[in-house]
Design a protein around this nucleic acid. Structure first.
Length: 701
DNA sequence: GTAGGGTTAG
């Protein structure tokens, strides 16, 4: 009662007062105060009505940080119970507000049940349902509901389209998106500028920039949102200069940039300095979203410390900014820091969403962390996150990383909507786990289910063909590539070259390579290593210089291929020169693989002293492969003494790896030292490796 | 209505 006195009320405050107070809490996005006020109603013996409840629900949905808190869900259930008890749940608009709250909490199933049980529905409740389903990533379902809504005689409004259209902003639904656009035109809803913005964005996300441009130019009153949409459309498709030009036009037309403009420009990477400058000038640099974008910029450049500092500078921590940090740790295999972030998130009373979950799962790579992966799977089941295809996708990838294909498959089969990306995850999971036949089987299933495999599916499948040397299937994929105009894609070209090389058809690999207009670095690399694999070292080296003439800078993989080519051709001097070039001209630090390659080069040429000196001068500790290369050379040149010395080293490095014993046994055999051969064979039996395990695959035609 | 954190590939 003190509270009433303090604002000068001598009599019991009426419901109207509470409503206006609730309204102000909605304005200030303060659900906690709204809930407190609602509880106080009972102290005054005031009975809330349907409007009170709907205002309370609206207040709850007004703040995203509240929706992300662990309490929100419990309180939503309490409100729901209260609504049923007081009987106000029969009002359509109250039910719709509750549905909206459940949707924003990610509880799609609860919301859907609510909708199914509604005594009556109107177009607003349909809109809320479609909007929620769409925002929760169930895009195909959103489309189905839209059709159902029309069938049941409800007339979609422009808000319906604005809710639905973002769901069509993905390649697999591009066709449906066009249909919805057509529907909008027929229904006369397309003149609305919000609808046009949504459609522009949709076309941008489907990489149909021409359609996006046409729509954008059609918008008579281009708002800052329209401009941002077009900047984003260009940026997402890699047209950074065009994004910058639109930004210039926008400024010429005196449209004030907002934070979304800055964020879009930052992610479009179009001259980040000027975007940053602009942000500072306009004061937008203090904004949390802008800072989050900067955290990402630093993270992608490997500068986690700056990211951390920026995060600490944020007055209000958000899930998005924390996710940016988490993913930069996960990327760098720093699960310790990732888990600290997770603990921090719990302290902040937040919960994971699908993106945050995926970021964490991405960092789970080492067998020791597999338990964590299982725990997060459990977390997903408990919080309902596993209904989101994005989160399931992360789980499928995680399980495949540990060769746990059965669990990946069972997650997959339980999914109602299977987006292309999930098929791709499973396909690449199978290939990585060495189960290429399963991957190829999935390919036909995915076509049967109506998906058109994209460049990612094809590149994964092609590398599966390498694994089982399945040339015929690879050729089939090549035809698919040509029929669907995917040959221009970097990944596809590279994978094709790789497949043909590994399946014994260097001629075809060469033909594919020559058909590519502008090969990227990886494509050049796979051609160079193809040549070197076939002992065509001169072709490999010509390729290497042509690549540089095109203005491309070789990387570590290029040099692995080049050094291998020199080894095959016995080009000792060349190899030495390229090794120097790699370090001095291109500032690349040689890895153990490069060093093993050099030892191999010297060793095969019989320069065992040079090989030894090379190992002595190495800046990193030589590993099994480096010493193994030298032992191999000893076999070739029948150097028993040195061989024995190296074999001892190898034994201490990894006594379980029987490879060196095979080499030693061969070495003794060449020298006809049969007693020693027998001794080594005995050791092989003791270590468990018979030294002869291996398989060959012959494709039956 | 617009963006920011994220998954699949050589």
């Amino acid at each position: 009662m003190n509270w009433a006195c303090s604002i000068g009320l001598s009599t019991k405050p009426g419901l109207v007062y509470f409503h206006s107070l609730l309204n102000s809490h909605i304005q200030t996005k303060n659900p906690k105060q709204a809930l407190l006020l609602f509880r106080q109603l009972y102290e005054f013996n005031v009975k809330p009505n349907d409007l009170t409840s709907s205002l309370l629900l609206k207040a709850c949905t007004s703040s995203s940080s509240y929706l992300n808190s662990a309490n929100a869900e419990i309180e939503a259930n309490q409100i729901h119970t209260h609504l049923i008890k007081s009987g106000v749940d029969r009002f359509v608009y109250v039910g719709t507000a509750l549905l909206d709250l459940y949707m924003k909490l990610g509880r799609v199933r609860n919301a859907q049940k609510l909708f199914d049980d509604m005594p009556e529905r109107d177009d607003v409740s349909w809109n809320a349902l479609i909007c929620g389903v769409s925002r929760n990533g169930r895009h195909f379902e959103a489309l189905e509901l839209f059709v159902q809504m029309c069938r049941e005689g409800f007339r979609p409004r422009h808000t319906t389209l604005v809710s639905l259209v973002p769901s069509c902003g993905r390649h697999e639904l591009a066709f449906q998106g066009k249909s919805v656009h057509g529907f909008g035109i027929k229904a006369g809803l397309d003149s609305d500028s919000q609808v046009k913005n949504a459609l522009t964005s949709m076309y941008g996300k489907c990489a149909d920039l021409e359609a996006a441009e046409v729509l954008f130019e059609e918008i008579g009153d281009k708002s800052v949102v329209s401009w941002n949409t077009m900047i984003g459309a260009y940026g997402q498709n890699g047209f950074f200069d065009e994004a910058m030009l639109v930004f210039k036009r926008m400024r010429e037309e005196d449209v004030q940039a907002n934070l979304v403009t800055v964020v879009s420009l930052l992610s479009a990477n179009a001259d980040p300095e000027s975007a940053h400058c602009h942000a500072i000038k306009t004061g937008l640099v203090n904004n949390a979203s802008v800072i989050t974008s900067l955290i990402c910029e630093y993270a992608t450049r490997g500068n986690t410390e700056s990211g951390e500092l920026l995060y600490k500078s944020l007055p209000q921590k958000t899930l998005v900014s924390l996710t940016a940090l988490i993913s930069s740790y996960a990327e760098r295999d720093n699960m310790g820091q990732v888990m600290e972030c997770f603990a921090h998130l719990l302290q902040l009373d937040m919960k994971l969403d699908a993106v945050a979950m995926v970021s964490i799962l991405h960092g789970i790579k080492h067998p020791a962390d597999f338990g964590l992966g299982l725990a997060f799977h459990g977390y997903g089941l408990k919080t309902g996150l596993t209904a989101d295809s994005l989160a399931v996708n992360g789980l499928i990838s995680m399980y495949s990383r540990f060769d746990n294909i059965e669990d990946a498959f069972s997650l997959f089969s339980e999914m109602r909507e299977k987006p292309l990306i999930t098929w791709n995850s499973l396909v690449s999971g199978c290939v990585q786990a060495g189960r290429s036949s399963d991957a190829l089987e999935l390919f036909s299933q995915m076509k049967m289910s109506g998906h058109s495999p994209d460049s990612i599916s094809i590149s994964s499948l092609l590398s599966g063909c390498c694994q089982i040397e399945y040339l015929k299937f690879g050729e089939g994929l090549h035809t698919y590539v040509l029929r669907n105009n995917l040959e221009g894609e970097d990944f596809v070209g590279t994978a094709l070259i790789d497949m043909y090389t590994k399946c014994g058809r260097i001629d075809r690999a060469e033909r594919v390579f020559k058909s590519i207009k502008e090969p990227c670095l990886a494509t050049w690399n796979s051609m160079i290593s193809g040549y070197s694999l076939y002992g065509l070292e001169h072709k490999a080296l010509v390729c290497f210089s042509e690549m540089q003439e095109q203005g491309l800078k070789p990387d570590k993989i290029t040099f692995l291929a080049v050094l291998a080519a020199c080894t095959h051709g016995g080009l000792v001097h060349g190899g030495r020169t390229y090794f120097q070039m790699m370090k001095e001209r291109f500032n690349l630090i040689p890895s153990l693989q490069h060093c093993a390659c050099m030892v191999n080069l010297y060793g095969r040429a019989g320069l065992l002293d040079d090989a030894l000196m090379f190992i002595r001068d190495m800046e990193i500790e030589p590993d099994f492969a480096v010493w193994g290369a030298l032992l191999n050379a000893c076999c070739i040149h029948q150097e028993v003494k040195l061989g024995e010395y190296i074999a001892k080293k190898l034994f201490f490095l990894d006594s379980k790896n029987a490879g060196f014993l095979v080499l030693m046994s061969n070495l003794y055999a060449i020298k006809r030292r049969w007693e020693d051969v027998a001794r080594v064979r005995e050791m092989m039996r003791e270590t468990g490796g018979d030294g002869c395990s291996g398989i060959s695959v012959i494709e039956m035609t």
